[in-house]
Design a protein around this nucleic acid. Structure first.
Length: 217
DNA sequence: TGCCAGGCCGGGT
DNA sequence: ACCCGGCATGGC
């Protein structure tokens, strides 16, 4: 119960203090997908450079990724790190979309959420957070995205152990909040915001955090 | 300067 | 089921 109180209270506090976050920072569903893959364990600023490089070289679209040489892709996305892996991941999902949906993302997104999630997870390079980010921010369907910051923030407030499972945390949020795409969208973005700015791995700046200091350290 | 970033995969036990 | 090493650049 304590956890649910925190989850509800934190949302109200954050939306009031920080306002709408206007997520995901992308111009199209495909750009959401590309960003979601490139940002795996990577600073968003590096991701932006990689995306700009792809666009600048005219190798950004699904069609371009399918036909481009994998070495060219990895060269362009170098700033985002793990470039060989990520080039392969972009290829994998682009080819999947071509083969099964004739490049039409809307066809993929028509699927029920459960099927969509399972299908995304079956693609090499797409794990739970990436799949859920795509479903929430590209397909705009209600799944809650859990990331490193979500876990760290709950943990810092003494609400979960560090080794909590992704699915358990996701369930916690889903059971607590109304099943609403807009709320899930906003909440995850808000958690990333305070995660980046206040809930650092070292040197937590809790004194300025809108959520306050709730854990003795 | 070192530590960290909006994870995921594959192999071993 | 759990644990671990590998992947890699750029920001602060």
């Amino acid at each position: 119960m304590e956890k649910k109180d925190f989850i509800q209270g934190a949302y109200n506090t954050l939306i009031e203090e920080l306002g709408p976050q206007k997520w995901w920072p992308a111009d199209s569903p495909w750009e959401v997908i590309v960003g979601a893959i490139l940002t795996q364990n990577t600073n968003w600023k590096n991701v932006r450079k990689a995306i700009e490089n792809l666009k600048g070289a005219g190798l950004f679209s699904i069609e371009n990724i399918v036909s481009a040489d994998i070495k060219d892709i990895s060269e362009l996305i170098k700033p985002s790190g793990y470039f060989n892996q990520k080039a392969k991941k972009l290829k994998a999902i682009a080819i999947h979309i071509k083969r099964n949906y004739g490049y039409d993302l809307n066809e993929l997104f028509k699927k029920p959420v459960d099927e969509l999630r399972a299908e995304l997870l079956s693609i090499w390079g797409i794990g739970k957070e990436t799949a859920d980010s795509i479903i929430l921010y590209a397909a705009e369907k209600p799944v809650f995205v859990v990331d490193r910051y979500t876990i760290r923030i709950l943990s810092r407030h003494g609400l979960i152990d560090d080794d909590y499972e992704y699915d358990d945390i996701q369930k916690l949020f889903i059971e607590t909040l109304p099943k609403d795409t807009r709320i899930y969208n906003e909440y995850h973005a808000l958690l990333v915001n305070i995660g980046k700015n206040y809930c650092l791995k070292k040197e937590p700046r809790c004194e300025n955090c809108p959520l306050g200091i709730m854990l003795d350290r």
